[in-house]
């Protein structure tokens, strides 16, 4: 007998007298928190990420300013459909991991923002690019539209397509493995800069 049939057989035998019926209650919803965008900004900042709020017209200037602010100016990689004509930025051409390691920054859009937890979710469509490009460079500039911000985790789960690879990002990479002392930045981007467009 195959391992598969053996395991499934053991599972069935173990549950022979057990009724499979369990009613799963609908999880409770967080109460109305008022201004979701303000809450989102506050909670993203709680993770020691940087947030800049601006209008659609100002985005290009804001992002350029952030990149120029890096010492020596940043070499940035961008996804194919960023929809922002950033001078000097290189569009991802299926770079290898080692090639991506040569970039200082990445600029992407996002799929959803979650106010309650200060989380940004990427579903890696062409305006966000492959998972690797938003991972290897040390600075991630992420453009989130105010209309993409939802109240809580269940709203995000409803909107997101599980067939897509998803990356949920809440602040910069961090660890508390040394004496429970939180340190920002281990392997992921050490700086997360969220640009909130409204």
């Amino acid at each position: 007998m195959s391992a598969r049939d053996e395991i499934l057989g053991r599972v069935r035998a173990a549950l022979a007298d057990v009724s499979p019926a369990v009613s799963v209650p609908t999880p409770p919803r967080a109460p109305d928190r008022g201004d979701l965008v303000a809450l989102f900004v506050e909670r993203v900042e709680d993770y020691r990420a940087v947030v800049t709020r601006c209008s659609a017209e100002e985005v290009l200037a804001v992002v350029t300013g952030v990149l120029d602010g890096l010492p020596g100016g940043a070499r940035a990689v961008v996804p194919p459909d960023l929809g922002l004509d950033l001078p000097g930025a290189v569009v991802d051409a299926q770079f290898t991991a080692a090639e991506l390691d040569g970039f200082d920054a990445v600029v992407t859009r996002a799929a959803v923002g979650i106010a309650e937890t200060g989380t940004i979710v990427l579903d890696h469509q062409p305006d966000q690019g492959r998972r690797a490009i938003s991972l290897v460079p040390d600075l991630h500039v992420c453009l989130v539209d105010a209309s993409q911000v939802v109240a809580d985790v269940p709203d995000a789960i409803e909107l997101l397509d599980p067939a897509r690879p998803l990356t949920w990002i809440s602040g910069p990479s961090a660890t508390s493995d040394i004496e429970l002392d939180r340190v920002e930045g281990v392997h992921g981007p050490r700086t997360l800069h969220v640009v909130l467009i409204s």
Partner: peptide
Amino acid sequence: ERMNPYTSTWS
């Protein structure tokens, strides 16, 4: 934490 820094899902 309200949410951990990174969660990855893939199918």
